[in-house]
Design a protein around this nucleic acid. Structure first.
Lengths: 214, 214
DNA sequence: GTCTATAGGGAGATAGAC
DNA sequence: GTCTATCTCCCTATAGAC
C-alpha cells in the first residue's frame, strides 16, 4: 500500500482495479485471466502480481472497493432523517442510483454472492468483505424493524423481507443483455433508471394489486 | 441422442447432466472442468466428450433441461384458470416450488443470465435457450397485461414490473450461503420456503406499507 | 461406449535483471 | 515498479485401441 501520487493520474494500482472490476463483472472470477487484466492496463502480468500478490487478493480488493462505495452512500442516506417510510424510499432510491451510475457494481456484487465457493472465505480479505456486507444489511434491518413497530410497515418477517428485496434492487442492473431484451431499451438509460425506481418504490409501497380489488 | 435404456438405471448421458448441473450451479461455466464432471460420474474425460462434443454443448444441455422443467410447470400453472390475481398467485407460488425442489436451478439460471458473454450465443443450442426463456416470459407478460386491463392490477409498466419481479423470485434460492446467513436457517427448508412464499405473495399483493399509513 | 495417451495451449505464480 | 523468461500444472479436445 503506497501513498497516492501528487499528480492527478491514477496510480497503477487503481488502474488495475478499474480494469479488473470491469472484467470480473463481465465474466466472473474464473473467467478472467491475470494476463487479460494486465493487457487491459497496459502492463506486464508480473507487474500486476507486484501490486496484488494473488488473483484472489485482486478480486477481494475489487469487491471491497465496490462495497465501500455502496455502504458509504447507503449509510449517509439512512442517516438523513425522516420517518421510516421516507427513509426507506430514499435509501432504496439512492441504492438504485449507485448501481445505475456504476454498471459493473450490481453484476459483480450478485456474482460475488455465489462465487464464494471459488474463493478463500477466510483470511483478512474475506473478513473485510463480510464486514462491509454486514454494514449494509444491519442498518437496513433496523430500519424495517423500526417501521414495523411504528406501525408504518406491515408486520412481517424482517429477514425474509430483506432477502426478498435484494433481488429487485440488484438484479435489474445485473441482468445485462437479458434486461435489455425485456425492456427493449438499455437498463442504464436515465429514463429507464427513473422508471425502474418509481415502479420499485410503488411495488414496495402498495404492491401490484389495484386498491379497489381488496 | 440414443434411446433411453429399458432398465430403470439412468443413462450415462443423464448422469453426466446431473453432475454437470450441480457443478455449474456451484462454480459457474469457467469454474468447472470436464475432468471434474467425468470424475463425478465415474467415467473418463473422453467418455464425457463422447456424449457432448464440447463443454459449451454440455452447458447448454444443462440449461435447456432446467428451463424445460420450469416452463412445463409454469405453463400448466397458468393454464389452470381463475382470475388474473388468482393465477398470478398460483404461478408465482409454483415457480418458487420448482426452484425450492431443485436447489441447483435458481443459481444456475441466474448465472446463465450473465454468463452469455462466455458462451456462443448463436448456434442451435443458444436459440433453444432463447426460445425456452421466451416461453416463460411471454405468458407472464400476458397475464400482467390482462390483470391490468381487468382492473385487478394497478396500471404499471409491464416490462419493468416483470424485470423487477424476477429478482425476488429467483434470487433467494440462488443466494446460497448468503441467504442462509440472512435468514439464520437453510433457505431450502420446507418452513423457510413456505415463509418466503407467503411473504413474497403479500409483497406483491399489498406492498410493505401498513394499510393505515396510506 | 469406454478407455489410455497425447496434443497444444493457457493458467497462476516466481526469479531475477534493470 | 516494470520487465523477460520460466516453472508447473491444468485446461479443452482429439486419436485410436478395445
Amino acid at each position: 500500500m503506497t501513498i497516492a501520487p501528487l499528480k492527478n493520474e491514477p496510480s497503477s494500482r487503481d488502474r488495475i482495479l478499474d480494469v479488473a472490476e470491469e472484467l470480473f463483472a463481465r465474466r466472473g472470477y474464473s473467467g478472467v485471466g491475470m494476463k487479460e487484466v494486465a493487457d487491459g492496463v497496459g502492463l506486464g502480468k508480473s507487474s500486476v502480481f507486484h501490486h496484488f500478490k494473488s488473483k484472489a487478493e485482486l478480486y477481494a480488493a475489487v469487491c471491497i472497493r465496490i462495497l465501500a462505495r455502496i455502504e458509504d452512500r447507503f449509510v449517509r442516506s439512512l442517516a438523513a432523517g425522516g420517518t421510516p417510510a421516507v427513509r426507506l424510499d430514499r435509501c432504496v432510491g439512492d441504492l438504485l442510483d449507485v448501481l445505475a451510475e456504476h454498471p459493473t457494481h450490481a453484476r459483480l456484487l450478485l456474482r460475488s454472492m455465489f462465487e464464494d465457493d471459488d474463493l478463500p472465505d477466510d483470511g483478512p480479505e474475506g473478513r473485510a468483505v463480510y464486514e462491509a456486507v454486514g454494514g449494509i444489511l444491519e442498518p437496513f434491518s433496523s430500519l424495517l424493524k423500526e417501521g414495523m413497530s411504528a406501525g408504518e410497515f406491515r408486520l412481517a418477517s424482517v429477514s425474509h423481507v430483506m432477502l426478498l428485496l435484494i433481488g429487485p434492487i440488484v438484479f435489474p442492473f445485473a441482468s445485462g443483455e437479458f434486461g435489455q431484451q425485456v425492456l427493449g431499451k438499455d437498463v442504464f438509460d436515465a429514463a429507464q433508471v427513473r422508471r425502474l425506481k418509481s415502479e420499485l418504490l410503488d411495488l414496495v409501497r402498495v404492491g401490484l394489486h389495484a386498491p379497489s380489488a381488496e
